[in-house]
Design a protein around this nucleic acid. Structure first.
Lengths: 233, 233
DNA sequence: GATAAACGTTGCGAGAACGCAAACAAAGCC
DNA sequence: GGCTTTGTTTGCGTTCTCGCAACGTTTATC
């Protein structure tokens, strides 16, 4: 088993305020693994036997309704924890996590969660802070779904992804993983048809550039105006 | 200053697992107060100088968008904490809390939050568990807003309120505080007009009975069927 | 008890978004 | 290289829900 170096994680948000020895303790009990694109890391409703840290790649977290509709709860970027059901007082995962690209992750048995939280107060505090941030995010989304119409919701979703994973290219800011029309629809509570229509309209106006599972935001500023509603339609 | 008896709070969820002495310590630093109906307990964006416990009454938590639209995030029942911005890593309140009826609350200075969480591990754990529950609730709402149409959302909202505060009457289960059509609309992301139409339709079918700021669910079971979509329209 | 304010109901027209269907384009596979 | 699979575009009719407006009803105020 190859040794995991603490510089891998020392700078990541969940581990701020921890000293070197503690990091090593945590790493000593971690298992690293590769996850192939489109493979699930854990499944909704399954027993939460482990929690994870995304080291590299992008993961989408999906909830499926009883009648089969999908909603993308969020995308996870490197350095974030996932599957922390225990921190939410659950024993099963509330959603399914799927690798959007090939990923590298660390995993720990769920059993260790409470140990870590108790032994390393910073780690616990960081995690709870992250949960708090997610709660606010979820609320923001409820507001958005309640008060804004589709085009603005889609614009907001794209801007958030760009902010999270935007990669500078000649054309603008490219969202750094495969993202289909259906994915965008699942994020914003609409249909792939409507997203497709919006994208072509925006492409004509020069706001974005997009192809098969690929989106580049050309004029983030104008897209923001549209999202915020100063829109000139 | 009148003494607060520990039996006031000993059985409430946030204080489970705490011993008598700790409860007294907390109560010793609490301030109790009455809040008149339709008065706000704290305001969105204001400095979070205190956190609260609702002892009696009902409180609605409201978010207002920049352009003035309101969304009711949730209703709080006796025994629940509110204004725990600090537990979410915030220094300002993320929403406004308004007494739906005359209320009795306890308050503590925010400064004490971290002290309590550290000194009384059960209290901290209980609170974080509550935050986790709220996160799941918020996610459930995002799913609902994304995938369900208005009538089901309204049905769900009513059922949730009934479950939370339902009071048995001759007609059925009465929601135990003034609840206007506009309030229901603000909870479900629709308009008071649409809610009004739904309510009259449901009243004709004998599912509910409602008057001015008053809603009684007559046949919860049938309303649930409608909410879940086995609906016979 | 008259008047005002708040809340609720209902009709009608409009528009956003959906759903279906068909055609097209790109990527993967043998 | 042809074939299949997967993702995207686009047209068209439909439907839900909104927005406006007018009116009715209950509660509060002086």
């Amino acid at each position: 088993m190859s040794r995991l170096d603490r510089t891998l994680i020392a700078d990541l948000a969940p581990f701020q305020g921890m000293d070197a020895a503690d990091l090593d303790t945590m790493l000593g009990q971690a298992r690293s693994m590769r996850v192939v694109k489109e493979t699930s890391i854990f499944e909704q409703e399954a027993e939460a036997h482990a929690f994870f840290l995304l080291l590299d790649g992008h993961v989408r977290v999906v909830k499926t309704t009883p009648d089969g509709q999908q909603v993308i709860v969020r995308y996870i970027s490197p350095g974030e924890l996932l599957g922390i059901a225990r921190a939410l007082g659950r024993t099963t995962y509330p959603a399914t996590a799927v690798a959007a690209v090939d990923c590298v992750i660390l995993s720990w048995p769920s059993r260790l969660w409470s140990e870590f939280a108790a032994a390393f107060p910073s780690f616990g505090a960081n995690t709870y802070k992250a949960v708090g941030a997610r709660l606010q995010d979820a609320h923001a989304r409820v507001i958005e779904m309640s008060t804004e119409q589709v085009d603005r919701r889609v614009a907001h979703a794209l801007l958030k992804l760009v902010q999270q994973t935007g990669k500078k290219t000649d054309d603008g800011l490219l969202i750094d993983f495969p993202l289909s029309r259906q994915d965008i629809a699942d994020m914003t509570g609409t249909t792939l048809h409507t997203v497709s229509r919006l994208m072509t309209a925006w492409e004509e106006r020069g706001l974005v550039k997009s192809g098969r599972q690929k989106v580049t935001v050309v004029q983030p500023h104008k897209l923001l105006l549209l999202a915020e509603g100063q829109a000139d339609k």
